[in-house]
Nucleic acid binder design. Sequence first.
DNA 1: ATGTTC
Length: 476
Amino acid sequence: MDINDLKQSSKYSWQLDPRGHMRVPVVIYGDYDLVAAMDDKVLKQATNVAALPGIVTASYAMPDAHWGYGFPIGGVAAFDADQGGVVSAGGVGFDISCGVRTLRTGLKVADLELNKRILANALYEEIPVGVGSTGRIRLDDAQMDAMLAGGAQWAVAQGWGSAADLERIEEHGTMRDALPNEVSARAKTRQRSEMGTLGSGNHYLEIQEVSEVYDQRTAEVFGLHTGDIVVTIHCGSRGLGHQIGTEHLRDMAQAAHRHGIDLPDRELACAPIHSAQGRGYLGAMRAAINCALANREIITHLTRQVFARVLPDAQLELLYDVSHNTCKLEQHAVNGEIRQLYVHRKGATRAFGPGHPELPAVFRDVGQPVLIGGSMGTASHVLAGNAGNDALSFASACHGAGRSMSRRRATKTWRGREVIDELEERGIIVRSPSMRGIAEEAPDAYKDVDAVVNAADRAGLARKVARVIPLVCIKG
DNA sequence: ATGTTC
């Protein structure tokens, strides 16, 4: 984008003041190079979001932002229901509650040396991955509704997970106020056999090594040390979330006029929070959040079974589980006044700072773990929510590296096999059913995750704690 | 992201 259109509001933020239909400014976080390299559509889409009814403070874009459906991916926007505020299916995205969880293993790099390939093969064997993949679990109607209401707590109660994990999951494992009855039969049918599956696209399961620690005190609280082996799982709500997104985008676009909402872009389809349609979407979306939380818990269970067989000394303990495609009702201070706001984070991670009452006691002093997944073959990062970020981004940070090249262009640029061979030479084992998927996900189709994370850190959104590098990647 | 143009 032409960065000259923006005024630099701090060393790592850029602002567009309200004009035209905008009700609030746009604020984009990043250094000069990151913001200048962003597609024009990021600014256009963030500007459109700034025009939606009931938006509060600003329409934000994180340092990894790129253009998406309606809202930018990497977008954060909060709405006040009592001031005509809206909820937007496009503001959450198709992969509802897509997110990341990281597990500590108690292993060091040397423990993996002999078994790395065996482990990679066993994980690839046991964890269903790829488009349309199904698992061994089948849910009947009653079980489906219980899952959609209970999330990871439900999974644990079924024996697929560990009760100790629950406090280390956002919402303590269960998204409240989910409405399974608002989820269509078609969405439920699509999900019936997909519990405990990774999916495709940018989803993955990685075995990683902690390569650097930046914040010793926080890393100690998180239980991370240089040379530690961790497992990170990135996936979402599979066919169910996608179906809910598809249906509600369509319905919201059709009904916007009836609600008196003038959409600057049809893709920004939304409905008043105080409307049957808004309530219906929120209920279904929360059910999809539970689906994603249950899904990641089940995949964790499968992962533990594989480790128990291959490396019985390992103890997989959850560090934390974060979602980065959600709309959540949260309390935020706006100009000194506490307000209840519906915060959309689309490709943005919640990053509650120290002392936040939602956090489990273990993180109370240091802030929430903010898990940033890199692209395949590159580093990932663990950050911690910063005091004061409430005023910067409704306590949000980036979610990953962010694409810099379209999937289509990536498939014309790389062959999957070559990408895998190159990674293999660097000691990274990749297993995937889709060579096209691998080409789409080639490391260079993404921004530099280290630059993105540095910008988030320096902008004050979240602070760097540790960097991890991949050893094994099971890719969708 | 996605039973990958339902």
